[in-house]
Amino acid sequence: MFTIIDLIQPDNLNEAYQILSDKRNNTILGGCAFLKMGKKRINTGIDLTNLKLNYIQESDDFIEIGAMTSLRELETHPLLKEYYKGVLPQSVRDIIGVQFRNGVTVGASVYSKYGFSDLITALLCLDTEVELFKAGRMPLADFLTMPKAKDILVRLWIKKTLRQATYLSFRSSASDYSVLNVAVSKLDNHWTIAVGARPSKAAIAISASAMLSQEVPTLEKIEEIAQKASEELSFGTNQRGSATYRKALCKTLVKRGIMEVLPCKSN
């Protein structure tokens, strides 16, 4: 079990960041579901409860999601059900259970860059930006490839568009980690295909997405593009599946994803 020597609930981000940088073992606490499984010895736990980062709100151009928002709020929020064909609620609904999702946070889920993440894959097919306290605001894709540095994820910014999206995860049993997951989106004729749990972290199938954006997709073309996606990305083997199997799943899920988004009108 993890240990915490001290715990602070700072009133502003500056203070939170100060404490975080003070010592190597000082740690931000989200919902603690992941932290508590580890053996980490935390010097000062920094609980962000007082920072009012638990919100989902819309402005003219963006939907803003605070770091302390729970996955359950993401799942049930009317705004997110309405936008992007409800891809975000769809992506988190199979994670363990309601009482679990009521506790775990968006900030931790994104910041941790888990390979198996459902949420990151879905966010990656939208126009998502991550706001970090120190490193500032950047596209999610950049954040994912950036080396890990101590920082605080403050909020997500998702561009408000008529983007239509869908999310598919393949699980060997319900509430298990995904063997593979896929998000596909389309804005006008611009497509994005993101694939996660490869089992390494989610990535965009750039060539396949580009091909799809150029073509008038026929069934044959879609098969070809799905094949392309499974070829341009790399897959690995772990307890949940072999690389070969993941590659095959990728093709199937990408194809199905495209088919689901295809009939949707985004303009």
């Binding site: 060997s172 049993s173 509430s175 298990d176 307890q239």
Partner: peptide, 29 residues
């Protein structure tokens, strides 16, 4: 039949010692 298996790594350490790695059926399964 479908989900459960006790597995070991190559050194004989059990790899399925949590409900995260050893999946018993949920009500969806």
């Amino acid at each position: 039949a479908l989900y459960e298996q006790v597995r070991y790594d190559e050194l004989g350490k059990m790899a399925t010692n949590t409900f995260m790695q050893y999946k018993i059926p949920t009500r969806k399964d």
